[in-house]
Amino acid sequence: MRTLKVQLKEDEHTLLDTEGRTALTPEELLALLPQLFGLKQAPPLPLATRKYLPLSEYLSDSDDSVLTLSFADIENLLGFTLPASAKKHRAWWSNSSTGHSQAAAWLNPGWKVAGVTRTTVTFQRQKREDMHIITGRVGGKSAGYDLNLIWSAQELKGRIGGALSGSDVNLRIEHGRVQGRVGGRNSGFDVKGILTPERIEIRLGGDVIGADLRIDLHDSTATGRLGGTKLGHDLQLTQKSSEWCGRIGGRFEGKDVVLSSEAPGEIAILAAAITFKALEDDLAAAAGS
Rank of each mutant, 00 (worst) to 15 (best):
Leu16Asp: 10
Gly249Asn: 14
Ser70Phe: 09
His100Phe: 05
Gly99Met: 12
Gly166Leu: 00
Thr135Ser: 00
Ala286Met: 03
Ala84Lys: 08
Thr221Asn: 10
Leu59Tyr: 12
Ala103Trp: 00
Leu226Arg: 01
Leu78Tyr: 11
Trp244Pro: 10
Gly166Arg: 00
Ala284His: 07
Gly206Leu: 06
Val116Asp: 06
Ala114His: 15
Leu33Gln: 01
Trp111Phe: 07
Ala84Gln: 15
Gly227Cys: 07
Leu4Gly: 01
Ser165Met: 00
His13Lys: 15
His233Asp: 14
Ile74Asp: 15
Leu226Trp: 00
Asn186Trp: 04
Met131Lys: 08
Thr117Tyr: 03
Lys157Met: 11
Glu280Asn: 06
Leu8Asn: 10
Pro43Trp: 01
Asp190Gln: 04
Gln236Ser: 13
Ala272Arg: 07
Lys51Asn: 06
Leu171Ser: 03
Leu4Lys: 06
Thr98Ile: 05
Leu195Ile: 11
His100Trp: 01
Lys230Phe: 13
Lys9Ile: 13
Val116Tyr: 03
Lys157Ala: 13
Arg177Ile: 04
Phe123Asp: 14
Gln102Val: 03
Asp190His: 01
Leu36Ile: 08
Thr117Glu: 09
His100Ala: 04
Glu10Gly: 14
Lys88Ser: 15
Asp146Ser: 12
Leu213Ser: 04
Arg2Ile: 01
Asp207Trp: 10
Leu164Pro: 09
Pro44Cys: 02
Asp190Ile: 01
Thr49Ala: 07
Lys192Gly: 03
Ser142Gly: 08
Gln239His: 06
His100Ile: 07
Ser65Cys: 13
Asn76Met: 08
Gly254His: 14
Arg50Gln: 08
Glu10Cys: 12
Asp73Cys: 15
Gly265Ala: 15
Asp190Met: 05
Glu129Met: 03
Phe80Asn: 05
Ala268Glu: 12
Ala286Asp: 02
Ala278Met: 02
Thr81Glu: 14
Leu67Asp: 15
Gly224Lys: 08
Pro26Gln: 04
Glu19Gly: 04
Ser60Leu: 14
Val113Trp: 09
Ala272Tyr: 13
Glu57Cys: 13
Ala153Met: 11
Thr25Ile: 01
Ser260Lys: 04
Thr22Pro: 12
Leu279Met: 12
Thr238Pro: 06
Gly79Cys: 05
Ser97Lys: 05
Ala104Pro: 04
Ala105Gly: 15
Ser60Cys: 12
Arg125Phe: 11
Asp146Val: 02
Gly38Ser: 07
Ile173Arg: 08
Ala285Asp: 08
Arg125Ala: 12
Gly227Met: 07
Ile200Phe: 04
Phe123Gln: 08
Phe37Leu: 02
Phe71Thr: 09
Thr98Val: 06
Gly115Ile: 05
Phe37Gln: 01
Gly227Asn: 09
His218Arg: 14
Thr25Met: 06
Glu266Leu: 12
Ser165Asp: 00
Ala286Glu: 02
Trp111Gln: 06
Ala284Val: 03
Gly110His: 07
Asp216Ala: 14
Gly193Asp: 07
Ser242Glu: 03
Leu24Tyr: 04
Pro264Asp: 15
Glu198Tyr: 07
